[in-house]
Write a protein that binds this DNA or RNA. Structure first.
Length: 372
RNA sequence: GGUGGGGUUCCCGAGUGGCCAAAGGGAACAGACUGUAAAUCUGUCGGCAUACGCCUUCGGAGGUUCAAAUCCUCCCCCCACCA
């Protein structure tokens, strides 16, 4: 009936949209948050955990899985879904973020990027085509084009040159895997840094390429919240209305609410999982730093309003103890909670859009999280 | 009983005349983390003071010296080996 890439909008509330995106491994109800599972695993959790908390789609990373265990090895095992025993959709990032985060150990050219392996220092080259080949081997449902994620503080000239190259790379990715040549779909990525006209230009160029969805990249790279929201509100509503919109690498609960209000459908971020491992937990009343001494003898649940396994079964005192003792269960229980919280937030967002009460929901979280 | 080694700030542990409130590590306390080089990183960590700085501290008590955690005397503990 539906085919990968089909996108149906069910309801809107101002710019916020409630929709369904079809993929080869099932439908995704948006707006959605996608837990990050860089190395073929959402750190500390099992696929069962993720299913329990109703994660609909997770991320994998081209660069990491290419280096280890190797995309061809994964392909020989039937692809990432089978290898990792994850039956729902997977989106793979292209390595574009590593162009940014591994700035010191990479070299860029029109042809592609040369990366140094962070594991053993060896040299590896990603062309846009290579990034797609790897994602084909991984068998993800949504492939991302290779882009240059430009960090904050780059001047206009550099950003402009970079965006033009990202467009050419996007075209090469699409040419390498034309629409409909398989059941994987491909998203283009808008760059342009913090120059609105360059964002517009990037989008205009990308519009000319037939992608199943569009992403906003290059945000949350060191700028202030104000600058980020400024660009977000400028560009997100301009992305094709009839296609999924993905805000890459964002963000805090408030960032996500802000993104949805600007018409974004998909989000991913390491924040809930990484912060969980580092002791910062997201709750309905704000952030909780579970390592604080004040929780040593606090027998209340982390978040009384949360229905997750962690909150239903353990006290703050115990969670603090596990964290202080560096017990492995700490990472697991904390990650479980944070991702449950994010996914539950998305569920509330979807419902609010359907009910036309998104504005109220956003205000509620803004009160709890104090404008970030 | 003898010989040798040692007692340092919450813990371990450097330091043998001034550059020492005393390295380093741990613990503790707090903060950061946004397409994961992150189970990571940063700051504080004797007391008082915004600060210049002042005060207290290196087993105990005395002493030498302009100056002592560092040298001397006695005492109290601990460890090793020998009897």
């Amino acid at each position: 009936m539906t085919k990968p890439g089909d996108f149906t909008i069910h309801a809107t509330d101002n710019l916020a949209r409630r929709a369904t995106l079809s993929t080869a491994h099932g439908d995704i109800q948006t707006p959605i948050f996608m837990p990050v599972g860089t190395q073929g695993t959402v750190k500390s959790l099992t696929p069962l955990d993720l299913e329990e908390m109703e994660a609909q789609i997770i991320l994998g990373n081209t660069y990491h899985l290419y280096l280890r265990p190797g995309d061809e090895l994964v392909a020989r095992r039937g692809g990432l879904h089978k290898f990792a025993n994850w039956k729902r959709p997977i989106l793979t990032d292209s390595g574009g973020f590593q162009v940014f985060s591994l700035e010191g150990i990479r070299k860029l050219s029109e042809e592609g990027v040369e990366f140094r392996s962070y594991i053993d220092g060896s040299k590896h080259f990603f062309s846009p085509e290579k990034a797609i080949d790897i994602q084909m081997n991984l068998g993800s449902d949504i492939m991302m084009v290779l882009d240059e994620c430009v960090g904050y503080g780059n001047d206009r000239a550099y950003t402009e040159k970079s965006l033009e190259m990202t467009t050419r790379w996007a075209q090469r990715c699409r040419d390498h895997y034309p629409k409909g040549s398989g059941d994987q779909i491909m998203f283009g990525i808008v760059q342009g840094g913090f120059y609105k006209d360059l964002r517009d230009r990037s989008l205009e160029q990308l519009r000319g390429i037939d992608f199943e969805g569009f992403a906003i990249g290059g945000l949350s790279v060191g700028e202030s919240t104000e600058e980020m929201y400024d660009i977000l509100h400028h560009i997100a509503p301009k992305l094709p209305h009839e296609k999924p919109r993905y805000l890459m690498g964002v963000g805090t609960p408030l960032d996500i609410l802000e993104g949805v209000s600007a018409g974004v459908d998909m989000f991913d971020c390491v924040l809930p999982s990484r912060n969980a491992r580092n002791g910062t937990l997201f709750t309905s009343t704000g952030k909780v730093n579970i390592k604080r001494a004040e929780y040593a003898e606090d027998d209340s649940p982390l978040d009384p309003n949360c229905g997750c396994y962690t909150c239903r079964n353990f006290t703050k005192a115990y969670l603090r103890h596990l964290y202080m003792a560096k017990e492995l269960l700490s990472y697991r229980l904390n990650t479980y909670h944070n991702l449950y919280f994010y996914l539950d937030l998305m569920k509330q967002i979807r419902k609010a859009i359907e009910d036309g009460t998104f504005r109220e929901l956003k205000a509620k979280y803004e009160a709890a999280y104090g404008q970030r």
